[in-house]
Design a binder for these strands. Structure first.
Lengths: 94, 94
DNA sequence: TAAACAAGTTTACTTTATAAACCAAATAAA
DNA sequence: TTTATTTGGTTTATAAAGTAAACTTGTTTA
C-alpha cells in the first residue's frame, strides 16, 4: 500500500539540496548554504552522503584563491528524486 | 525558501499512520499494522509519539476478551498533516 | 494443563541528524 | 608586520530516531 521512501532522500536537508540542484543544475557550497539555511557542518556531511550514493558529484576547485566546491546532480540522482516524489504520493495523495 | 518540515510527520511510519487515519477516521492497532507493514514494536512507539503531540487519540478497550487499541486523528493532527503536505511543495514542486 | 497465539509494550542497539569545535588559507586591521 | 577576522569548509561529539528482539499478559486450542 505505501511505497518505501528512499532514506537517502527522506531527509530535510538532503531533499532541499537535491531540489536546488535539480532546479539549477550546478551550485556551489556557499550557494547551497544560503538556499537551505543549513549549517556548514551539516551541509558538508549530507553532501558526502549524497555523493557516496552517486546522486550528486562534488568537485573541489578554486576560484581565484578561494576554494570552491561545486555540486551537480547526476542522472541517478534525478531518477531517485523522481521516484521519491512519486512514492510520496502514496502517503499524501495526488 | 524551504519551509521547515514538521519532524513529527517527517517519518515514514508516522506519516503512513496519519495517512491511514485521515482516510479512515478510525483504525485499530492490528489494521494499522496491516496497512503499514510495520513491526508491532515500532508501531507502538510511533503511535505514542503521535498521541503525545496531540495528533491522534489512542483508546484502549476490549472487543470481547481481546484488547483493542483504537486510534483517531484529531483536528490538530489533520491541520498538521495539511501543513506538512503544503510545506513539502517547496521541496518537490507543484 | 501445557503449548501456541494475540495484542501490545519495553529494552537495547544501530543509524541519523545536528551543532559545536576545529583547521587552513586569505584578507583586513592595528 | 603581527594579529585579528573572515571564508570555506571538515571532523568530532552528542542527542534524537528508528527498529528488531525480547518480554508481558491474557486467551484460545490441543
Amino acid at each position: 500500500m505505501f511505497d518505501r521512501l528512499d532514506p537517502l532522500l527522506h531527509s530535510e536537508l538532503r531533499l532541499a539540496v537535491m531540489s536546488v540542484l535539480i532546479g539549477s543544475d550546478e551550485a556551489d557550497f556557499v550557494y547551497l548554504r544560503q538556499q537551505t539555511g543549513a549549517t556548514a557542518g551539516n551541509l558538508s556531511v549530507q553532501l558526502d552522503k549524497l555523493a557516496a550514493a552517486g546522486y550528486i558529484t562534488v568537485e573541489k576547485g578554486f576560484q581565484g584563491k578561494k576554494p570552491r566546491t561545486t555540486c551537480r546532480v547526476t542522472d541517478t540522482g534525478r531518477a531517485a528524486f523522481a521516484a521519491y516524489v512519486e512514492s510520496l504520493r502514496s502517503y499524501i495523495g495526488k
